[in-house]
C-alpha cells in the first residue's frame, strides 16, 4: 500500500504541511499519537512524525515537519502526487483528554503542530484553553490562525521580538500561573523548552504533560532505542509515551542521547544535498 501526497505547502521556509493518504491510520488516530514514515523501503530510515490532524472523508493524515536532516529534507522535496512507501501507525498512547478546568497549551517552534489537535480536543472537552506559542522569529511562527479559533486566550512570543512579545514561553507561563488557577500545562516543542516549561509548571505545582521526540526505529517497543528515564525508571517513548509527566523526565539525559548520530546525520544530509545538486535525485 502506498501513500499519495494529496496536498503540500510551506508554513515557513523549512517547515512543511501535507495531507497524505493513509486511510487505516486516519480512521484509528487520536490526538497525541504519531506515525513512523519510511520513504523508500529499499534505503530510507524510519522517522517518527506526529499526526497533526486527520480527514476521514479523504482518508488522509496531516503531517507537519521541519526539514532538518536527510529524511525530512527528502520528504520536503517530494511533490503533490508523489508517494511515500510506508506509513505505520497510529503509534503511542493517545493524550488523556477530559475536563480538567483551565489547560495551558504551550507550543515551541514545530511543536505547535502536534499541540494543535490536543488543544482542540481539550477545548471540545469543555476546558478553558489558554495557548502560548513561541518561535525564534515571526517567519518561523506556525499555525497561529488555527490556535486563534480554538483558544480562549492566545499569547505569542518570539525570541527576537519580531512579533508578539519579546520573551521565551516560560515568561507568560509563569505569569498566567500566578494570575489564575491552571489545572494542566501541556508543553510541546524543543526538548530544552519542554525542560524549562516543566520546571516553571512545577514551581506552581501544576501538573505538566510533555511529548517527547527521541530517536526511534520500530515504534512498537521492540528495540528500546527510544528509552528515557522518567521518575528514575526506564520508559520507552513509543509505547509508554510519547507523553509523560514533565516533572519526572530526565531531560538532560535525553538531550545527550539525541546527539548520538550527529556526525552520521550531517554526513547523510551533505551527501543527499550534493546528489540533488548534481541532479541524481530531484
Amino acid at each position: 500500500m502506498s501513500h499519495k501526497i494529496l496536498s503540500k505547502k510551506n508554513l515557513s521556509k523549512d517547515v512543511f504541511i501535507a495531507d497524505i493518504e493513509a486511510p487505516l491510520v486516519a480512521s484509528a488516530a487520536k490526538a497525541g499519537q504519531f506515525v513512523i514514515v519510511c520513504l523508500k523501503t529499499s534505503y530510507s530510515e524510519r522517522i517518527p512524525l506526529t499526526i497533526a490532524g486527520t480527514d476521514l472523508k479523504n482518508g488522509t493524515i496531516r503531517l507537519v515537519w521541519q526539514a532538518i536532516g536527510k529524511s525530512t529534507v527528502e520528504l520536503g522535496n517530494m511533490q503533490v502526487g508523489d508517494e511515500v512507501e510506508n506509513i505505520l501507525g497510529p503509534l503511542g498512547k493517545p493524550t488523556h483528554i477530559e475536563k480538567f478546568g483551565t489547560v495551558l497549551c504551550v507550543g515551541g517552534g514545530i511543536g505547535n503542530a502536534p499541540l494543535l489537535p490536543i488543544a482542540k480536543a481539550m477545548k471540545e472537552a469543555g476546558n478553558k484553553v489558554i495557548s502560548i506559542l513561541g518561535a525564534r522569529n515571526k517567519e518561523l511562527l506556525i499555525l497561529e490562525d488555527d490556535f486563534k479559533t480554538i483558544s480562549d486566550e492566545l499569547i505569542i512570543v518570539t525570541d527576537d521580538g519580531s512579533y508578539g512579545r519579546k520573551a521565551v514561553v516560560t515568561v507568560p507561563l509563569d505569569e498566567i500561573c500566578q494570575r489564575e488557577k491552571v489545572d494542566l500545562v501541556v508543553a510541546i516543542g524543543p526538548t530544552i523548552m519542554m525542560k524549562f516549561a516543566s520546571l516553571a509548571a512545577a514551581k506552581h505545582n501544576v501538573h505538566v504533560v510533555v511529548s517527547l521526540n527521541t530517536i526511534m526505529i520500530d515504534g512498537t517497543g521492540m528495540c528500546g532505542g527510544c528509552r528515557v528515564e522518567v521518575g528514575g525508571k526506564t520508559k520507552f517513548v513509543c509505547v509508554d509515551g510519547p507523553e509523560f509527566d514533565g516533572r519526572q523526565v530526565n531531560f538532560d539525559l535525553m538531550m545527550k542521547r539525541m546527539q548520538a548520530y550527529k556526525k552520521q546525520e550531517q554526513q547523510a544530509l551533505e551527501q543527499y544535498k550534493h546528489k540533488c545538486k548534481i541532479g541524481l535525485e530531484k
Binding site: 526505529i217 528495540c223 528515557v228
Partner: peptide
C-alpha cells in the same frame, strides 16, 4: 545503561 553507545541487541541487529 542510558549512555550513548548502549544498545539492546534488537536495536543493534535491526539497524
Amino acid at each position: 545503561e542510558h549512555l550513548i553507545g548502549v544498545y539492546s541487541a534488537n536495536e543493534y541487529l535491526t539497524r
